[in-house]
Amino acid sequence: MGFLEHQDRARTRTTVLVIYFAISVVCIIAAVYIASVLIVYGTQANRPSGSPPTELVLWDPAIFLYAALGTLSVVIIGSVYKIAALAKGGSAVAESLGGRLLSPNTADPGERQLRNVIEEMAIASGMPVPRIYVLDDEPGINAFAAGHTPGDAAIGVTRGCMTLLNRDELQGIIGHEFSHIANGDMRLDLRIMGVLFGIVCLAVIGQVLLYSSRGRGRNPLLFLGLALIVIGAIGVFFGRLIQAALSRQREFLADASAVQFTRNPAGLSAALQKLGGTGSQVKSAHAGEASHMFFGNGMGTSFLGATLATHPPLAERIRAIDPSWDGNFHQGTVRVAAALSHLGSA
């Protein structure tokens, strides 16, 4: 399978996952509606003076309108708030992770090479040259792209990337980050995070209703609050699952696009193998909220492991671009370190 087919496959799966996401929002509206119908029925049935026995009406346009409008407005207001809070440019994200802006006229050979490789990939991908940041305190191999439009994008690279990788491997990683910019992954991520927060808001409103109506007997608001908490929790769980699956597809797409830009699968494959041998941990306190943006898994594995991982397993990524891989991760640090000390002493 060539890189073009890999890209097509990842794109199709993205569409499917985005549809799932929309379906889950529709399901949430339906659940809120059903809960409201039951609560309205329950409070009417318990009315002591209820001489005409009320029937359970499954379709009540008025309640549906309230449920749909209420849910949608909570989700939309929540999303807009979160997106506005997150929507700072790429430089802001890079600086919050401890990045140092690379000066255009740097004399350091490693930084010079990084700048050159980024300029090459900008030409290959047809994107403007982003601002470049170096994470000096991170010894692991990792990189990220941040920003919402190609115009305000920033690329950050760990110190480990520059000391442990050779030129071709660095080019593979930078190509991967450029495809996140070119494919609009940062924007997609932002929207999904916004909607997820909107669903969280639903559960929060449920909690508020629950607490405010405590100790007032069989208050319908109490039941509505409980229902919203449950629906919100289930919604967030499935939302996270879909978000993680989506992120994994975008990683495959970015790997395949990196091969398209560099025309050199060996470079990216070797970089991924070194990443497997050396590690990609990012220590910055802000790494958690940015974990989906990194080249390799920046965080430890979560308790749900593979289902909630933002990145596919390394072995799977390597096999996708290099079917002849022998399954061994290479450390390769000694040889490269020797070459670098050579560079430094020169």
Partner: peptide, 24 residues
């Protein structure tokens, strides 16, 4: 081992790559 030579090599490699990508 000459620093200037290493820098020139790096610049030349990068320029070669840029030519190749622009040619595409």
């Amino acid at each position: 081992a000459n620093t200037t030579m290493l820098q020139l090599m790096e610049e030349l490699t990068s320029t070669e790559n840029k030519v190749a990508f622009s040619r595409q």
